[in-house]
Design a binder for these strands. Structure first.
Lengths: 108, 108
DNA sequence: CAGAATCCCAAGTGATACTG
DNA sequence: CAGTATCACTTGGGATTCTG
């Protein structure tokens, strides 16, 4: 069982901390959730959908998500430029887990 | 599916945000993890196990976890006083989910 | 259009000392 | 022993403006 690390502390090597680093923060899960539900989305559309995100935060979150392999960025060389974001396959496998987590939190 | 909220944004009512409020933060998952693995644990023992927590943070986290029904506090009227923390039954059901989440993050 | 740069604020975290 | 109080600090998040 992955949660078990002898006597704890899991500390730095804890898979859960790693997970939190990937999808923690105020907006990352919403971003993934939106991309999952709505499919590939342009930057400004995403910004409108996630009502209240600032550019700073959204851009940073997207870059981190991309670096971590959760999101793919595709740039279409049109004028004006068009950029779409979508979730990756490994990220797809995260969705059902998040789903369980959400259900659990609501039943609590 | 709980993750689906029409077009998103899940925003405030998002079950995932609720979950994050419960178990987010730097130490809460470690606390739950430790209590799960080691069983009922006294305050100072917990503090030693989670190497690096300050009193401020640990005490606050434990109080919140207790308010949210994830942790039970039991006070034994001995001299000196003894206080033990343990995870609750609803919290037990969270463990396998965290386990999946941890596994996912490591396989990524 | 898609972001980067800048600046600011609030919240979270932490170290230390102290007390019922 | 199990915390609380106080204060300092770091980080994340946000508003706004600007540019390739």
């Amino acid at each position: 069982m992955a949660v078990n690390h002898d006597n704890c502390p899991c500390m730095d090597s804890c898979p859960l901390n790693h997970a939190l680093a990937l999808i923690g923060g105020k907006w990352k899960m919403q971003i993934l959730c939106s991309l999952y539900n709505n499919g590939p989305t342009r930057y400004n559309q995403l910004k409108k959908t996630l009502d209240g995100v600032s550019n700073t935060v959204l851009a940073n979150a997207l870059r981190e998500l991309e670096e971590d392999g959760l999101v793919e960025r595709q740039e279409y060389l049109e004028v004006p430029v068009r950029v779409e974001y979508r979730i990756t396959e490994p990220c797809q496998r995260l969705i059902p887990i998040l789903d369980e987590l959400g259900n659990w939190s609501m039943e609590l």
